[in-house]
Simulated assay, not measured.
Amino acid sequence: MTLPLILRSVADLRQHVRAWKSAGQTVGVVPTMGALHDGHLSLARAARAECDRVITTIFVNPKQFNNPEDLKHYPRSEEADAALLATVPVDVIFAPQPEEVYPDGFATTVSVSGVSEPLEGRMRPGHFDGVATVVTKLFGMTMADRGYFGQKDWQQLQVVLRLVRDLNLPVHIVGCETIREDDGLAMSSRNLRLTAAGRAKAPVLYAAVTAAAADIRAGQSDRMAIREAAEAIRAAGFDRVEYIELRDAETLMPSDDPTRPRRMLAAAWLDGVRLIDNIPV
Protein backbone atom coordinates (compact mmCIF):
# COMPACT_ATOMS: atom_id res chain seq x y z
CA MET A 1 0.00 0.00 0.00
CA THR A 2 1.44 3.33 -1.08
CA LEU A 3 0.94 6.14 1.42
CA PRO A 4 -0.25 9.52 0.15
CA LEU A 5 2.33 12.24 -0.40
CA ILE A 6 2.60 14.40 2.75
CA LEU A 7 3.31 18.09 2.15
CA ARG A 8 4.12 20.67 4.84
CA SER A 9 4.45 23.97 2.98
CA VAL A 10 1.99 26.05 0.98
CA ALA A 11 4.60 26.51 -1.74
CA ASP A 12 5.01 22.74 -2.26
CA LEU A 13 1.24 22.22 -2.18
CA ARG A 14 0.57 24.90 -4.76
CA GLN A 15 3.24 23.52 -7.06
CA HIS A 16 1.30 20.26 -7.24
CA VAL A 17 -2.10 21.90 -7.51
CA ARG A 18 -0.99 24.19 -10.34
CA ALA A 19 0.27 21.17 -12.27
CA TRP A 20 -3.07 19.41 -11.79
CA LYS A 21 -5.06 22.44 -12.84
CA SER A 22 -2.89 23.09 -15.87
CA ALA A 23 -3.84 19.54 -16.93
CA GLY A 24 -7.52 20.45 -16.56
CA GLN A 25 -8.06 18.38 -13.39
CA THR A 26 -10.52 19.23 -10.63
CA VAL A 27 -9.37 19.37 -7.01
CA GLY A 28 -11.34 18.41 -3.91
CA VAL A 29 -10.31 19.19 -0.33
CA VAL A 30 -11.35 17.48 2.90
CA PRO A 31 -10.34 19.66 5.88
CA THR A 32 -9.71 17.66 9.07
CA MET A 33 -7.87 17.93 12.38
CA GLY A 34 -6.67 14.33 12.13
CA ALA A 35 -7.57 11.43 14.47
CA LEU A 36 -9.47 10.11 11.48
CA HIS A 37 -12.37 7.65 11.50
CA ASP A 38 -14.88 6.32 8.98
CA GLY A 39 -16.77 9.62 9.04
CA HIS A 40 -13.73 11.44 7.70
CA LEU A 41 -13.02 8.66 5.21
CA SER A 42 -16.57 8.95 3.86
CA LEU A 43 -15.81 12.58 2.99
CA ALA A 44 -12.57 11.57 1.28
CA ARG A 45 -14.41 8.87 -0.67
CA ALA A 46 -17.04 11.38 -1.79
CA ALA A 47 -14.26 13.68 -2.97
CA ARG A 48 -12.53 10.78 -4.72
CA ALA A 49 -15.75 9.95 -6.59
CA GLU A 50 -16.31 13.51 -7.77
CA CYS A 51 -12.83 15.02 -8.27
CA ASP A 52 -9.73 14.15 -10.27
CA ARG A 53 -7.46 14.96 -7.34
CA VAL A 54 -8.08 14.85 -3.58
CA ILE A 55 -6.27 16.70 -0.80
CA THR A 56 -6.95 15.90 2.85
CA THR A 57 -5.69 18.53 5.25
CA ILE A 58 -4.60 17.53 8.75
CA PHE A 59 -4.18 20.56 10.96
CA VAL A 60 -5.10 20.89 14.63
CA ASN A 61 -6.22 24.50 14.44
CA PRO A 62 -5.31 26.36 17.64
CA LYS A 63 -7.66 29.23 16.84
CA GLN A 64 -10.82 27.15 17.24
CA PHE A 65 -10.09 25.85 20.73
CA ASN A 66 -11.53 27.76 23.68
CA ASN A 67 -9.74 25.56 26.21
CA PRO A 68 -5.93 25.26 25.97
CA GLU A 69 -6.16 21.85 27.66
CA ASP A 70 -8.43 20.58 24.85
CA LEU A 71 -5.85 21.71 22.30
CA LYS A 72 -3.03 20.10 24.27
CA HIS A 73 -4.82 16.76 24.56
CA TYR A 74 -6.37 16.62 21.08
CA PRO A 75 -5.28 13.27 19.59
CA ARG A 76 -2.58 13.39 16.95
CA SER A 77 -2.03 10.26 14.88
CA GLU A 78 -0.59 11.29 11.53
CA GLU A 79 0.97 7.93 10.69
CA ALA A 80 -2.28 6.04 11.34
CA ASP A 81 -4.26 8.73 9.50
CA ALA A 82 -2.02 8.43 6.45
CA ALA A 83 -2.54 4.65 6.39
CA LEU A 84 -6.32 5.12 6.47
CA LEU A 85 -6.23 7.74 3.71
CA ALA A 86 -4.16 5.38 1.56
CA THR A 87 -7.20 3.10 1.41
CA VAL A 88 -9.33 5.76 -0.33
CA PRO A 89 -6.82 6.75 -1.77
CA VAL A 90 -6.18 10.50 -1.56
CA ASP A 91 -3.44 12.14 -3.58
CA VAL A 92 -1.95 14.49 -0.98
CA ILE A 93 -2.05 15.03 2.75
CA PHE A 94 -1.39 18.66 3.60
CA ALA A 95 -0.15 18.73 7.20
CA PRO A 96 1.41 22.12 7.92
CA GLN A 97 2.93 23.32 11.17
CA PRO A 98 1.06 26.13 12.98
CA GLU A 99 3.66 28.71 11.93
CA GLU A 100 3.03 27.86 8.27
CA VAL A 101 -0.66 28.66 8.69
CA TYR A 102 -0.27 31.54 11.15
CA PRO A 103 3.14 33.11 10.50
CA ASP A 104 4.65 35.68 12.82
CA GLY A 105 2.56 38.86 12.73
CA PHE A 106 -0.61 37.14 11.52
CA ALA A 107 -3.40 39.66 12.21
CA THR A 108 -6.52 38.66 10.27
CA THR A 109 -9.70 37.02 11.53
CA VAL A 110 -12.66 35.93 9.41
CA SER A 111 -15.94 36.25 11.29
CA VAL A 112 -19.35 35.08 10.04
CA SER A 113 -22.14 36.76 11.99
CA GLY A 114 -25.70 35.47 12.36
CA VAL A 115 -25.50 31.76 11.72
CA SER A 116 -22.40 31.39 13.94
CA GLU A 117 -23.90 33.09 17.00
CA PRO A 118 -26.42 30.70 18.64
CA LEU A 119 -25.90 27.17 19.98
CA GLU A 120 -22.23 26.23 19.53
CA GLY A 121 -21.34 29.88 19.06
CA ARG A 122 -22.90 30.77 22.40
CA MET A 123 -21.26 27.86 24.20
CA ARG A 124 -17.84 28.22 22.58
CA PRO A 125 -17.12 31.94 22.04
CA GLY A 126 -14.65 32.55 19.22
CA HIS A 127 -14.81 28.96 18.00
CA PHE A 128 -16.43 29.74 14.65
CA ASP A 129 -14.11 32.69 14.03
CA GLY A 130 -11.29 30.16 14.27
CA VAL A 131 -13.10 27.77 11.94
CA ALA A 132 -13.94 30.47 9.39
CA THR A 133 -10.40 31.83 9.41
CA VAL A 134 -8.67 28.49 8.90
CA VAL A 135 -11.18 27.27 6.30
CA THR A 136 -10.72 30.47 4.29
CA LYS A 137 -6.97 29.96 4.45
CA LEU A 138 -7.19 26.28 3.48
CA PHE A 139 -9.35 27.10 0.47
CA GLY A 140 -6.74 29.66 -0.60
CA MET A 141 -3.82 27.34 0.07
CA THR A 142 -5.30 24.35 -1.76
CA MET A 143 -7.06 26.30 -4.54
CA ALA A 144 -9.70 23.56 -4.35
CA ASP A 145 -12.76 23.44 -6.60
CA ARG A 146 -14.84 21.50 -4.08
CA GLY A 147 -14.80 21.27 -0.27
CA TYR A 148 -16.27 18.35 1.70
CA PHE A 149 -17.76 18.72 5.19
CA GLY A 150 -19.81 16.39 7.38
CA GLN A 151 -23.37 17.16 8.45
CA LYS A 152 -22.61 16.04 12.01
CA ASP A 153 -21.21 19.52 12.55
CA TRP A 154 -24.35 21.07 11.04
CA GLN A 155 -23.75 24.59 12.33
CA GLN A 156 -20.17 24.53 11.08
CA LEU A 157 -21.43 23.48 7.64
CA GLN A 158 -23.86 26.42 7.57
CA VAL A 159 -21.07 28.80 8.63
CA VAL A 160 -18.88 27.55 5.77
CA LEU A 161 -21.72 27.81 3.26
CA ARG A 162 -22.41 31.41 4.33
CA LEU A 163 -18.69 32.24 4.26
CA VAL A 164 -18.32 30.98 0.69
CA ARG A 165 -21.46 32.81 -0.49
CA ASP A 166 -20.61 36.09 1.17
CA LEU A 167 -16.97 36.20 0.04
CA ASN A 168 -17.64 34.81 -3.48
CA LEU A 169 -15.06 32.08 -2.94
CA PRO A 170 -14.72 29.85 -6.04
CA VAL A 171 -15.30 26.58 -4.20
CA HIS A 172 -18.41 24.39 -4.17
CA ILE A 173 -19.28 23.09 -0.69
CA VAL A 174 -20.56 19.52 -0.37
CA GLY A 175 -22.30 18.51 2.88
CA CYS A 176 -22.07 14.74 3.43
CA GLU A 177 -24.34 12.58 5.58
CA THR A 178 -23.39 11.84 9.17
CA ILE A 179 -21.73 8.44 9.52
CA ARG A 180 -22.92 6.50 12.57
CA GLU A 181 -21.91 3.47 14.55
CA ASP A 182 -24.26 0.49 14.38
CA ASP A 183 -26.04 1.70 17.53
CA GLY A 184 -26.65 5.18 16.10
CA LEU A 185 -23.88 7.14 17.82
CA ALA A 186 -22.42 9.73 15.44
CA MET A 187 -18.78 8.94 14.71
CA SER A 188 -16.43 11.38 16.40
CA SER A 189 -12.83 11.43 17.58
CA ARG A 190 -14.20 12.37 21.00
CA ASN A 191 -15.94 8.99 21.34
CA LEU A 192 -12.56 7.40 22.09
CA ARG A 193 -12.45 9.35 25.36
CA LEU A 194 -15.63 7.70 26.70
CA THR A 195 -15.38 4.96 29.31
CA ALA A 196 -16.90 1.59 28.42
CA ALA A 197 -19.95 2.45 30.54
CA GLY A 198 -20.23 5.87 28.92
CA ARG A 199 -19.92 4.41 25.44
CA ALA A 200 -22.87 2.12 26.23
CA LYS A 201 -25.00 5.13 27.24
CA ALA A 202 -23.92 7.46 24.44
CA PRO A 203 -26.40 6.28 21.74
CA VAL A 204 -29.27 7.59 23.88
CA LEU A 205 -28.48 11.10 22.61
CA TYR A 206 -29.35 10.16 19.03
CA ALA A 207 -32.27 7.97 20.09
CA ALA A 208 -33.80 10.75 22.19
CA VAL A 209 -33.62 13.47 19.54
CA THR A 210 -34.86 11.03 16.90
CA ALA A 211 -37.90 10.23 19.07
CA ALA A 212 -38.50 13.95 19.69
CA ALA A 213 -38.38 14.71 15.97
CA ALA A 214 -40.85 11.91 15.26
CA ASP A 215 -43.20 13.23 17.97
CA ILE A 216 -43.05 16.74 16.50
CA ARG A 217 -43.83 15.43 13.03
CA ALA A 218 -46.77 13.56 14.56
CA GLY A 219 -48.16 16.77 16.00
CA GLN A 220 -46.75 16.99 19.53
CA SER A 221 -45.67 20.46 20.66
CA ASP A 222 -42.01 21.29 20.10
CA ARG A 223 -41.48 22.23 23.73
CA MET A 224 -42.99 19.01 25.11
CA ALA A 225 -41.04 16.78 22.73
CA ILE A 226 -37.77 18.52 23.54
CA ARG A 227 -38.42 18.33 27.29
CA GLU A 228 -39.05 14.59 27.06
CA ALA A 229 -35.84 14.13 25.04
CA ALA A 230 -33.81 16.00 27.66
CA GLU A 231 -35.35 13.91 30.43
CA ALA A 232 -34.50 10.69 28.58
CA ILE A 233 -30.88 11.78 28.11
CA ARG A 234 -30.47 12.72 31.78
CA ALA A 235 -32.17 9.51 32.88
CA ALA A 236 -29.64 7.51 30.85
CA GLY A 237 -26.84 8.87 33.01
CA PHE A 238 -25.52 11.82 31.03
CA ASP A 239 -23.82 14.46 33.19
CA ARG A 240 -25.93 17.27 31.74
CA VAL A 241 -27.81 18.41 28.67
CA GLU A 242 -26.33 21.62 27.31
CA TYR A 243 -29.04 22.25 24.74
CA ILE A 244 -31.65 20.65 22.55
CA GLU A 245 -33.04 23.15 20.05
CA LEU A 246 -35.30 23.09 17.01
CA ARG A 247 -33.94 25.60 14.51
CA ASP A 248 -34.30 26.74 10.94
CA ALA A 249 -31.91 24.46 9.04
CA GLU A 250 -30.20 27.30 7.17
CA THR A 251 -30.26 30.32 9.47
CA LEU A 252 -30.23 28.40 12.79
CA MET A 253 -32.72 30.87 14.18
CA PRO A 254 -35.62 29.52 16.32
CA SER A 255 -38.32 28.18 14.01
CA ASP A 256 -41.91 27.13 14.47
CA ASP A 257 -42.52 27.09 10.70
CA PRO A 258 -42.86 23.47 9.57
CA THR A 259 -42.99 24.58 5.91
CA ARG A 260 -39.27 25.39 6.03
CA PRO A 261 -36.53 22.80 6.55
CA ARG A 262 -35.76 22.52 10.27
CA ARG A 263 -33.03 20.83 12.23
CA MET A 264 -32.95 19.54 15.79
CA LEU A 265 -29.52 20.08 17.32
CA ALA A 266 -28.28 18.80 20.66
CA ALA A 267 -25.21 18.90 22.87
CA ALA A 268 -24.74 16.93 26.09
CA TRP A 269 -21.92 15.91 28.43
CA LEU A 270 -21.07 12.32 29.29
CA ASP A 271 -17.94 11.14 31.13
CA GLY A 272 -16.62 14.68 30.83
CA VAL A 273 -16.88 14.43 27.03
CA ARG A 274 -19.05 16.84 25.06
CA LEU A 275 -21.14 15.04 22.43
CA ILE A 276 -23.15 16.77 19.70
CA ASP A 277 -25.68 15.53 17.19
CA ASN A 278 -28.40 16.78 14.87
CA ILE A 279 -31.15 15.44 12.65
CA PRO A 280 -33.69 16.88 10.20
CA VAL A 281 -37.24 17.41 11.46
Rank of each mutant, 00 (worst) to 15 (best):
L3M: 15
L7Y: 05
L13C: 12
H16M: 14
S22T: 15
H40A: 01
L41M: 09
L41E: 05
A47F: 05
R48G: 09
D52G: 11
N61I: 02
D70E: 06
S77F: 01
T87P: 04
T87L: 12
E99L: 13
S111H: 14
G114V: 08
P118N: 03
E120A: 02
G121Y: 04
M123L: 09
G126M: 05
G126P: 10
F128W: 00
D129P: 04
A132S: 06
K137P: 09
F139Y: 05
T142A: 13
K152H: 07
W154D: 10
V159E: 03
V160I: 15
R162S: 11
V164W: 09
L167P: 12
I173E: 11
V174Q: 12
V174Y: 01
C176R: 10
I179E: 14
D183H: 09
A186M: 00
M187F: 11
R193A: 13
A202L: 10
Y206D: 06
T210Q: 14
A211K: 14
A211P: 09
D215P: 05
A218C: 07
D222R: 14
D222H: 15
M224S: 12
A225E: 09
A232T: 05
R234L: 13
A236I: 06
A236P: 05
I244T: 02
E245N: 11
R247A: 14
A249W: 01
A249I: 04
R262W: 08
R263G: 03
M264R: 12
A268R: 02
A268W: 13
R274V: 02
